[in-house]
Measured scan of single mutants.
Amino acid sequence: MEQATVKWFNAEKGFGFIERENGDDVFVHFSAIQGDGFKSLDEGQAVTFDVEEGQRGPQAANVQKA
């Protein structure tokens, strides 16, 4: 698992990007966020996640709020 920071997340559209420590951004979809209830992330929030290869490149999976 990697630890990184949420760059931005649009709760209405259900997706955003996580900024990795190496500077690369990773796409995150609300369905990858672990937990119950409304799944959203806040800008600047610390998260841990795995990286999977998606249809359009790397994307976050198993996202957990740190």
Rank of each mutant, 00 (worst) to 15 (best):
M1D: 08
M1F: 12
M1H: 13
M1R: 15
M1A: 13
E2I: 14
E2Q: 14
E2R: 10
E2S: 12
E2H: 14
Q3I: 14
Q3N: 11
A4S: 09
A4K: 00
A4F: 05
A4M: 03
T5L: 11
T5I: 13
T5M: 09
T5K: 13
T5N: 08
T5C: 13
T5P: 03
V6R: 00
V6H: 01
V6P: 01
V6D: 04
K7H: 06
W8D: 04
W8E: 05
W8R: 00
W8N: 03
W8T: 02
W8K: 02
W8V: 02
W8Y: 06
F9C: 07
F9R: 00
F9S: 03
F9G: 04
F9A: 04
N10P: 03
N10I: 05
N10T: 05
N10D: 11
A11Y: 11
A11E: 08
A11W: 11
E12M: 12
E12G: 10
E12Y: 12
E12F: 12
E12D: 11
E12A: 13
K13D: 03
K13A: 08
K13M: 12
K13Y: 10
K13V: 09
G14D: 03
G14K: 01
G14T: 03
F15I: 08
F15K: 00
F15E: 02
F15Y: 15
F15C: 08
F15L: 05
G16E: 02
G16Y: 00
G16S: 00
G16W: 02
F17K: 01
F17Q: 01
F17R: 01
F17P: 01
F17H: 01
F17M: 06
F17C: 06
I18C: 07
I18S: 01
I18F: 04
I18K: 00
I18M: 04
I18H: 00
E19N: 11
E19I: 14
E19P: 00
E19Y: 13
E19G: 11
E19V: 14
E19C: 15
E19W: 13
R20P: 03
E21N: 10
E21K: 12
E21A: 13
E21H: 11
N22V: 10
N22F: 12
N22E: 10
N22R: 09
N22Q: 10
G23Q: 09
G23W: 03
G23F: 06
D24Q: 13
D24A: 14
D25W: 12
D25G: 06
D25Q: 13
D25L: 15
D25T: 12
D25C: 14
D25P: 09
V26Y: 04
V26A: 02
V26H: 00
V26L: 15
V26C: 05
V26F: 06
V26K: 02
V26D: 01
F27C: 07
F27S: 02
F27Q: 03
V28Q: 01
V28E: 01
V28S: 00
H29N: 02
H29Y: 04
H29E: 03
F30R: 06
F30C: 08
F30V: 07
F30S: 06
F30A: 07
F30D: 02
S31D: 03
S31Q: 06
S31Y: 05
S31H: 07
A32C: 07
A32S: 10
A32T: 07
A32H: 06
A32I: 03
I33P: 01
I33R: 00
I33S: 01
I33F: 04
I33H: 00
I33G: 00
Q34H: 10
G35F: 08
G35M: 12
G35Y: 08
D36I: 12
D36Y: 11
D36M: 11
D36H: 13
D36L: 11
D36F: 11
D36N: 12
G37Y: 05
G37W: 07
G37D: 07
F38Y: 12
F38G: 05
F38A: 08
F38Q: 06
K39F: 07
K39V: 08
K39I: 06
K39M: 07
S40P: 04
S40D: 07
S40K: 11
S40L: 08
S40R: 11
S40E: 07
S40Q: 10
S40A: 10
S40M: 10
S40H: 10
L41M: 04
L41R: 00
L41G: 02
D42A: 14
D42I: 15
D42V: 15
D42M: 15
D42G: 10
D42E: 14
D42Y: 15
D42F: 15
D42T: 15
E43D: 10
E43R: 15
G44F: 05
G44H: 06
G44E: 03
G44S: 05
G44A: 04
G44Q: 04
Q45W: 10
Q45V: 08
Q45F: 05
Q45R: 02
Q45N: 07
A46I: 15
A46M: 14
A46F: 13
V47F: 02
V47E: 03
V47A: 03
V47M: 01
T48A: 07
T48S: 10
T48M: 11
F49R: 00
F49S: 01
F49T: 01
F49G: 02
F49D: 03
D50R: 14
D50A: 12
D50P: 03
D50C: 14
D50T: 15
V51N: 03
V51P: 04
V51G: 02
V51C: 09
V51W: 09
E52H: 11
E52A: 10
E52M: 13
E52V: 15
E52K: 10
E52L: 12
E52P: 00
E52G: 07
E53S: 10
E53V: 14
E53D: 11
G54Y: 05
G54W: 05
G54I: 03
G54H: 07
G54F: 05
G54T: 13
G54K: 07
G54V: 05
G54C: 08
Q55F: 13
Q55W: 13
Q55P: 15
Q55K: 14
Q55L: 14
Q55I: 14
Q55A: 14
R56L: 10
R56G: 10
R56A: 09
R56D: 06
G57Y: 04
G57R: 06
G57V: 02
G57L: 03
G57W: 05
P58I: 09
P58S: 08
P58D: 05
P58V: 10
Q59R: 11
Q59W: 08
Q59G: 03
Q59F: 11
Q59S: 07
Q59K: 08
A60R: 00
A60V: 03
A60W: 02
A60H: 00
A60N: 00
A60G: 04
A60Q: 02
A60T: 03
A61C: 12
A61Q: 10
A61D: 03
A61R: 09
N62A: 04
N62R: 09
V63N: 00
V63E: 02
V63M: 00
Q64H: 13
Q64M: 11
Q64T: 11
Q64G: 08
Q64A: 10
Q64Y: 11
Q64I: 12
Q64S: 10
K65L: 14
K65T: 12
A66D: 10
A66S: 12
A66L: 15
A66K: 11
